[in-house]
């Protein structure tokens, strides 16, 4: 489901662990504008945590873009785009399996984010970086 942007997007560059906190905070605030209940806000913050953690760990630096979106049918939601120009992922199918990384084997990491959010999309080119786009719609 493609969403239309309904407010200015927020960009947080991710460079260190402290940037993870500010990305979470901005994401939580933005999602709060949609009227998400507080547990769902925590879900959005968690997804941002995992995505930002991946950037810091595997790509060193990147960016998280946060947007409020509309599905043209009055449904609102929040979109999180995590982009880096790091080494990229050689095998996406493998990377999306739970056993691929230590966090994945616990159900965290990218597979965990996919399960928390309503929509999940990943594009990665080996040597050119990775972009993960996730969306959560308000019920």
């Amino acid at each position: 489901m493609k969403g239309a942007l309904i407010a200015d997007e927020l960009r947080v560059s991710i460079d260190s662990d402290s940037d993870i906190v500010s990305a979470r905070q901005k994401g939580r605030e933005l999602a709060a504008q949609c009227g998400f209940p507080s547990t769902e806000l925590a879900v959005v913050a968690t997804a941002i945590s995992e995505l930002a953690r991946n950037i810091v760990r595997y790509a060193v630096r990147g960016e998280i873009v946060l947007r409020l979106i509309d599905n043209h049918g009055g449904k609102r939601g929040v979109e999180v785009i995590a982009a880096d120009d790091g080494p990229g992922i050689p095998d996406l199918t493998l990377a999306m399996q739970d056993g691929y990384s230590t966090s994945g084997s616990l159900g965290l990491g990218l597979p965990g984010v996919r399960r928390l959010m309503d929509e999940f999309d990943i594009v990665s080119e080996f040597g050119k970086g990775t972009t993960v786009t996730v969306r959560k719609w308000k019920r």
Partner: peptide
């Protein structure tokens, strides 16, 4: 929330 992710898995 980490437990929620593990549970969904």
């Amino acid at each position: 929330l980490p437990f929620e992710m593990a549970h969904r898995r």
